[in-house]
């Protein structure tokens, strides 16, 4: 379970991205965070795995404080969470397989990994996960020769080989062709259903959030304005999240 307590994020000098956000996300849930751009969606997601340090508040991962953790303990917590970026963030000139193996770095001996060698077990796992996302035959291609949709699937494979409890996806289809959004969202849903991995994804379009999210968290100006099931999202709520007027 991921628990957020009184999370506030201020970017200097005085841009407030998150204001006193508190949430509990139980294991196995598929949650979508929705809101207009600048609402604080990315900041919230990035706080959840420590990419962004909160100004105030606390993040608990399975009861352990990420905010207070340092060094080795912190890396262990971070490794339990896979992160899928809007821009994929693959290492362009490495092969697809090497990119996926990056997800194993927290599991393998450090010194050995530094010379680029991975235990057989890890390579087998990487191959299997690549096959699962449908890219087995592209394992030895350079990452930057793949299409956007393929690159995002490599990024999801990289997150999966971490053997994470949770996958965070930051607008995973925003840089892709609209037709590909469904492929990526379907893949995330399958991971959620088949592996029981918690999926939290930010989205900026309501229809996808309603279609895929068991739970919808609406953000506006850094505050949670809706938190509940997809069925409970009325026109008034959509208006409260996206509508005009002062927020």
């Amino acid at each position: 379970m991921i628990e957020v307590r009184g999370l506030t994020k201020v970017y200097p000098p005085n841009t407030v991205a998150l204001r006193d956000v508190s949430l509990k996300i139980p294991d196995g849930q598929f949650a979508t965070i929705i809101g207009p751009s600048g609402a604080g969606k990315s900041s919230l997601l990035r706080c959840l795995n420590g990419l962004v340090a909160p100004t105030a508040g606390e993040i608990l991962i399975d009861g352990e404080s990420l905010t207070a953790a340092r060094g080795e303990a912190r890396r262990r917590l971070v490794a339990r969470i896979g992160f899928v970026f809007q821009q994929f963030n693959l290492i362009k000139r490495l092969s697809v397989l090497d990119n996926v193996l990056v997800g194993r770095l927290s599991h393998v001996p450090e010194l050995r990994s530094l010379v680029g060698s991975f235990p057989r077990r890890d390579r087998v796992l990487a191959d299997a996960v690549l096959a699962r996302v449908g890219l087995a035959e592209l394992a030895h291609r350079r990452a930057d020769t793949l299409s956007g949709g393929q690159q995002q699937r490599v990024a999801i494979a990289r997150a999966l080989v971490q053997e994470p409890r949770t996958i965070l996806a930051d607008e995973p289809m925003a840089s892709l062709d609209p037709a590909l959004s469904r492929t990526i969202m379907d893949l995330l849903r399958r991971i959620n259903e088949e592996d029981g991995i918690t999926v939290i994804t930010t989205l900026h379009v309501m229809d996808l959030a309603l279609e895929y999210g068991q739970r919808v968290i609406g953000l506006r100006n850094g505050r949670v304005v809706y938190d509940g099931g997809a069925a409970g999202v009325t026109d008034e709520i959509v208006d409260a999240i996206f509508g005009g007027g002062a927020g």
Binding site: L51, R75, F83, F85, I91
Partner: peptide, 20 residues
């Protein structure tokens, strides 16, 4: 981006340097 991604996988500083 890639530097952030390697670090988000729970890699050590040396691993981030080596792979990112």
């Amino acid at each position: 981006g890639p530097v952030e991604a390697v670090s988000a996988a729970g890699a050590t500083r040396l691993q981030v340097l080596r792979f990112g």
